[in-house]
């Protein structure tokens, strides 16, 4: 095993991440406006912005899902219990004592177990809740006549949508905070900009990459 500067985030993944970050910011801002939390946008403008951003984000998710499964990257997001306790203990205790992070990024596992579990929950519970309720919300007039009490249905749907949105907001807060852990904010953000991060490579992995995808290894990160 040797530390190498490897491209862990290909161009599409970086685009996906930052476009998603922008769209989620726009959606949270316009959504909270529509909900009446602030009045910085007119309701009309908030609805238009929210709808356009939501459709754009959904299109992005369609591409991202396709990408995840065709490239096999989906495996990165499968949660594993192994190492979970150590990582949890680190954030709750070791971090205050200056201990090193127990998780070593490896080529096929760039998320630590806690991270992977969080993303798994986000991708399988919260995001689907957001877009399922979001589409139901948006298409209200197409189905309202088919159910007994459309007003009750839309009330429930809107409240689930709102709760999921607040959970996304909480995720964003913790996500941004965790960038300050370890080697600092910039060292966490930089790989998502340049694509390159220092990870452990086995000899075989390094040999393979140097032969077949030499651009994925840099000498200095």
């Amino acid at each position: 095993m040797a530390k190498r500067c490897v491209q862990v985030y290909p161009r599409f993944e970086r685009f996906w991440h930052w476009a998603q970050a922008l769209l989620i910011t726009v959606l949270l801002f316009s959504g909270l406006g529509m909900n009446g939390v602030h009045t910085l946008l007119s309701f009309d403008a908030a609805v238009r912005l929210h709808t356009v951003a939501a459709l754009a984000l959904f299109a992005l998710w369609v591409f991202a899902t396709f990408w995840l499964f065709t490239t096999g990257t989906w495996k990165q997001f499968v949660p594993k219990l192994e190492g979970m306790v150590q990582v949890a203990r680190f954030y709750a205790w070791g971090i205050f004592r200056g201990e090193p992070h127990p998780y070593r990024k490896i080529y096929w596992r760039k998320h630590n177990p806690l991270q992977a579990a969080t993303y798994f929950g986000l991708k399988w519970l919260i995001f689907p809740a957001v877009w399922l309720t979001g589409f139901a919300y948006l298409s209200y007039n197409l189905w309202a006549g088919e159910v007994a009490d459309g007003t009750l249905w839309i009330t429930v749907i809107a409240n689930i949508h709102l709760l999921a949105a607040y959970l996304v907001a909480a995720f964003v807060i913790v996500h941004v905070y965790l960038l300050t852990v370890g080697h600092g904010f910039l060292s966490h953000v930089r790989p998502m900009v340049t694509g390159y991060d220092t990870i452990d490579l086995t000899q075989e992995q390094e040999a393979y990459l140097r032969t077949n995808e030499p651009y994925r290894i840099r000498e200095i990160c």
Partner: peptide, 12 residues
């Protein structure tokens, strides 16, 4: 829901 949501964000 709005109050629970705000509490979650505040807790975070």
């Amino acid at each position: 829901t709005g109050m629970i949501g705000k509490l979650i964000v505040l807790a975070a």
